[in-house]
Amino acid sequence: MQHWLKCTTVVTTLAIAACSASPTGRNQLLLFSDQDMSSLGAQSFEQMKTDQKVSTNAKTNAYVQCVTNAITEHVPPQPGFSKWEVVVFDSKQVNAFALPGGKIGVYTGLLDVAVNQDQLATVIGHEIAHVLADHSNERLSQSQIANAGLQITNIALGTSEYAQYRGATMAALGLGVQYGVLMPYGRTQESEADIVGLELMAKSGFDPRQSVDLWKNMAKASGGQQPPELLSTHPSHSTRIQDLQAKINTLPSYNVSSPNCG
């Protein structure tokens, strides 16, 4: 109950403002229902499958699905949806995402940098953590409070304005780089997703030490120029590696067999 006392009561166009806590105990204000967020995520995902080329490579799809399944098996049932859906997009983007409603997208360009299953699990675990921590809901709610999110609120509630404001909607869900609108997750949310995702991938049998190697690969991939899309709003490489290493040192030993995804 203590986190409720720390939240500020806000009057918005919605009847009820829900004060909650993230998986790490951080205070959050979530104005939208799980059903609303799942609906918005599913609608946006269907649009992406129309707009972008979907990979038909059977081996690549099986590999990404195997890593994802190994992680989602350790995720408790989620309100608002019952099944995770994974799509591999045929693109050079070094990126991945997860949307409310259990929608996961992985770009083939990521597989050139995440060079083994443990490194891919680091990214997928991180993106799933965004969903588990309600980061999209939190960001939409913050926009609403700032009187900048009224149009997005209407979209989230299922009105016909989705097509008109598609770019803003995609950005609010973490897809701004692809759609030319930037509404990034905050550094706090990114760091939280790192920690929650690391715990999740380790619990699923993947090697958490590979997370450090992944971000070293990401740093090399940037080549001193524009970083990969996945890093565009994230903490610096050195900060992230230090934080991950510190977390790795505190992880318990999970009695789980390592997945064999190839």
Rank of each mutant, 00 (worst) to 15 (best):
T72C: 12
L214H: 04
I104Q: 05
A246H: 12
Q226E: 12
E85T: 15
T239G: 06
H130L: 08
P259G: 03
A70V: 11
T250C: 01
A62Y: 07
V212Q: 08
N154W: 11
K220S: 13
V11E: 13
E127I: 03
I128W: 07
N57G: 05
E199Y: 04
L182V: 12
H237F: 14
Q226G: 01
V196W: 07
F32Y: 15
L111H: 08
P252A: 12
Q52M: 15
V212C: 02
G80V: 05
L140V: 03
S191R: 10
Y107C: 11
V88M: 08
Q43M: 10
Q35L: 13
A148L: 13
V177M: 13
D213H: 09
N61Y: 13
P228V: 04
H74W: 04
D243S: 15
L244M: 14
Y165R: 02
L175S: 06
T9K: 14
S38K: 06
L40M: 14
C19P: 00
V256G: 02
S33N: 04
S136E: 01
A168E: 14
M218P: 02
T8A: 14
K92C: 06
F206I: 05
G167W: 06
T50W: 01
A168Y: 14
V123N: 01
I241T: 06
L120W: 10
L182H: 14
E73F: 12
E190P: 01
S141H: 05
H234Q: 07
G125H: 07
V64F: 12
P184V: 02
P23H: 10
Q2F: 13
T56P: 02
N147T: 09
I71Q: 00
A121N: 03
A172Y: 01
R209S: 14
C66P: 05
S160M: 11
L31A: 09
T188G: 09
S91I: 05
A133W: 06
K92S: 15
T233N: 14
Q43Y: 11
N69G: 06
N249W: 02
G105Q: 06
T12A: 06
Q52F: 15
T159A: 12
E138N: 11
N95P: 08
M170V: 00
D51F: 06
I128S: 03
V11K: 12
R209L: 13
T108L: 11
Q164D: 13
S143W: 00
E192W: 05
Y185R: 08
S22L: 01
Q178R: 09
L132S: 11
T72M: 10
